[in-house]
Simulated assay, not measured.
Amino acid sequence: MNILIPLLQEGQSAVADLMYGPERGSDGDRLELGDLLANDAFPVPARIRDQRESRSPDIQRALSLGYVPILDTSSWDYAVEETRTRPPVHAHRWVTFVAVSPVRGVSAPDDDSPREELTAFVDLPGGTTTMSIPLAGPPVVEMLEARHCALPSRGLCAPGCGSCAIREVLGPRSGLVCMCDHDGQAG
Score class of each variant (00 low, 15 high):
R147H: 10
D123H: 14
H182V: 14
A41N: 13
G11Q: 02
C180N: 03
M1Y: 11
F42L: 09
S113R: 03
G105T: 13
W94A: 02
G137A: 10
L156W: 04
M19Q: 12
L144F: 04
E81G: 11
S74D: 05
S153V: 03
P45V: 12
E10F: 12
S153Q: 11
G127Y: 06
M179N: 06
I166T: 06
G126Y: 10
S64E: 15
E32P: 01
A62Y: 02
F97Y: 15
W76R: 03
P109D: 11
Y78R: 12
E82H: 05
D72I: 04
T96K: 09
R173Y: 03
R93I: 01
L156R: 09
D72H: 12
S64N: 09
R49K: 14
S26H: 11
D110F: 01
V141L: 06
T119P: 00
L118T: 11
A41R: 08
L170Q: 08
I166C: 10
L7R: 10
C180L: 14
V98Q: 07
E117N: 12
G137W: 04
G25K: 14
Q9W: 03
N2T: 14
S101G: 05
P87K: 11
L156M: 00
A99E: 07
P152C: 07
L144T: 07
R167Y: 14
E142N: 15
A165E: 08
P159E: 15
A146S: 12
A158W: 01
D29I: 12
G162F: 07
G171E: 01
G184W: 12
A79Q: 01
R104K: 03
G184T: 08
A16D: 10
D183Q: 15
T85E: 03
P88A: 15
Q60D: 06
V169M: 01
P87Q: 09
E32N: 05
A158Y: 03
R49I: 00
R104H: 05
L7K: 04
M143T: 14
M143A: 08
E117L: 04
V103L: 11
R147N: 11
S153P: 00
S132E: 05
E10L: 15
H92Y: 12
